[in-house]
Design a protein around this nucleic acid. Structure first.
Lengths: 221, 221
DNA sequence: CGCGTCATTGATGTGCATCAAGTGGTGTGG
DNA sequence: CCACACCACTTGATGCACATCAATGACGCG
């Protein structure tokens, strides 16, 4: 994935991250508290990461798909601080972090790539904070759908159709809403002709409408 | 700050990050859209970072104090994606990022330190997502106060007294609340004898009460 | 086919936002 | 040094968006 590397360098990296691991739907890639040793690059499948507190609160912190990196939370304390759960059968590439650091010291391009991945995650989370801190239910769901479809499109899928791999409850947890609110908001969008929904299958009929929902501040006076 | 380096190495690092910069209260260290070149280590003073969207939404994404690193958001796109504003006169240490990457390639300890800093920020933001996504106003404010006082204590300040460098509105923006709600919640804590508030001066009378507010799930049925 | 899980929809409740008025502290200029 | 203006904050009254509670419906799997 990083650019600026020659074949020999790419091969060295490939060797270091040759180990694959399969995770069944519902299985965990890692759990809160487990020792951290590796980052994981998702090859196929779909994950959620979530925090669970002693007092039963549960927060989905992200949904990850093919090509995305998971496990960055574990670096700081050598232990993971969230759970990574497969939402469909998945395969990941295991990247031992000490090897990654070694190779990073050798290959500038790889080093910079790692930094960018971490920075990207920080910026993504800023966006989620904005969403959770200042958006209304419709805006949150619209932003969520646009983000999902954009990422899927970047992977060669349709711009207008997607299959949700997560439940309404998981969407709600991610967006700071209850599952009923998520469901109602979907229904509202359907009534307005913005999307079609059939179970987890969603078709976007009017992207511009979604965009304007996200950008309009129907919240301010 | 990183451990595991000898004097000569530390000196090399010092040279690379020798440049200081002062920022007046209300001034910006960087702004959304500005080119990214350096990270900043706060030497003195207090900052907020915030996102401002075209449609006028504003979200404080964090408050930073002495010893903390600011600017990580800029790495991914070579441009900053938020504003950093000084809440009091401040001085920072400018750390050109390309130099930091060079030195990281040389010194394993520094490299790992940088990775930890970025991972720590990711984990911190997970916590904020939990707060914004699932906590009630009182829980948010209690968690906020505990976090602030803990960080101040780690810097040698009191465990029970603190001066807020930010307005109620900025606290509200960070916590996803309106300033009136922040004010009311402060008043509620005062009535309950948990804290004393005199303007921006806060004294914590009952830490345990604050902790139990954060941990109790008064939200679930 | 029957059960469990997930989703939809309605009725009601509530926590926080909004709107509004007033207070106090701070800084500035006469 | 005081008067005025401004800003941050507090507090009250009201409204609304979303949560909660509850019942029913639709898949999918053994």
């Amino acid at each position: 994935m990083p650019v600026g590397l020659n074949d020999e360098q790419l091969q060295r990296i490939d060797e270091a991250v040759a180990v694959r691991r399969k995770v069944k739907r519902g299985g965990t890639l890692f759990r809160n508290g487990e020792a951290f040793t590796s980052l994981f690059a998702i090859r196929t499948g779909f994950f959620k990461t979530c925090l669970t507190t002693e007092d039963g609160r549960d927060q989905v912190t992200g949904f990850q798909m093919a090509g995305e990196i998971i496990g960055l939370d574990g670096i700081v304390n050598d232990h993971h601080s969230c759970d990574a759960v497969a939402l469909e059968d998945a395969e990941v590439c295991v990247m031992p972090f000490d090897r990654l650091e070694e190779l990073s010291r050798e290959f500038t391009a790889l080093q910079h790539h790692v930094h960018k991945i971490m920075s990207r995650e920080i910026v993504r989370e800023h966006g989620v904070m904005l969403l959770l801190g200042s958006m209304r239910a419709e805006e949150r769901l619209a932003a969520f759908l646009l983000n999902l479809v954009q990422r899927l499109h970047a992977r060669g899928f349709s711009q207008s159709e997607l299959i949700l791999r997560m439940t309404r409850e998981e969407i709600g947890s991610y967006l700071g809403l209850k599952l009923e609110t998520v469901s109602r908001t979907f229904s509202k969008f359907v009534e307005e002709g913005i999307i079609e929904v059939k179970q987890r299958h969603v078709r976007i009929l009017d992207v511009e409408a979604l965009r304007s929902i996200v950008n309009n501040q129907q919240n301010c006076h």
